[in-house]
């Protein structure tokens, strides 16, 4: 009888520990995201693309997988410093409304015909 009670108590402790870990884990993850992240996430969902974190991108670099990375800042900023192997193609606010044919051609020229490749865009930062 004593053994049964002991096992029952132990069984109760595991879910409690699990819940505490989940709550703590969620809190820590939530605190890691900067204030602008939710806005970036909303924009991504609205415009049909996904976000990539710095560590995911680092892993992608290390995996040796082929991908195209595009720096959309002005060329003079790109020349002063950019992420390794990035290509420069400046986009501004007007391009969000309408992508002109010359820029569209430049983008296609850069990306090529492989529609399944991974393409990463970045600017200065959304912060």
């Amino acid at each position: 009888m004593q053994i049964t009670t002991f096992s029952f108590k132990r069984l109760l402790i595991y879910p409690v520990i699990l819940i505490i870990l989940l709550v703590l884990g969620f809190t820590v993850t939530a605190e890691k995201q900067p204030a602008w992240f939710q806005q970036a996430q909303d924009e991504a969902e609205q415009d049909g693309y996904k976000l990539i974190t710095a560590h995911e991108m680092k892993a992608l670099y290390e995996s040796g997988e082929n991908f195209t990375i595009i720096d959309v800042r002005p060329e003079y900023e790109f020349r002063e410093g950019h992420i390794l192997h990035a290509n420069s193609l400046e986009f501004d606010l007007g391009d969000k409304l309408e992508l002109k044919s010359d820029k569209q051609a430049a983008l296609i020229g850069l990306l090529g015909s492989d529609k399944k490749q991974t393409i990463i865009f970045y600017c200065r930062s959304v912060a």
């Binding site: 049909g48 002063e80 990306l111």
Partner: peptide, 24 residues
Amino acid sequence: YQNVLRFPDGFFGWKSFFSDNTQS
């Protein structure tokens, strides 16, 4: 294009994480 990603931390975010992986 089906697999389009955005890196929202941008150049300055990347530089703060991995300054060695930049070039000028």
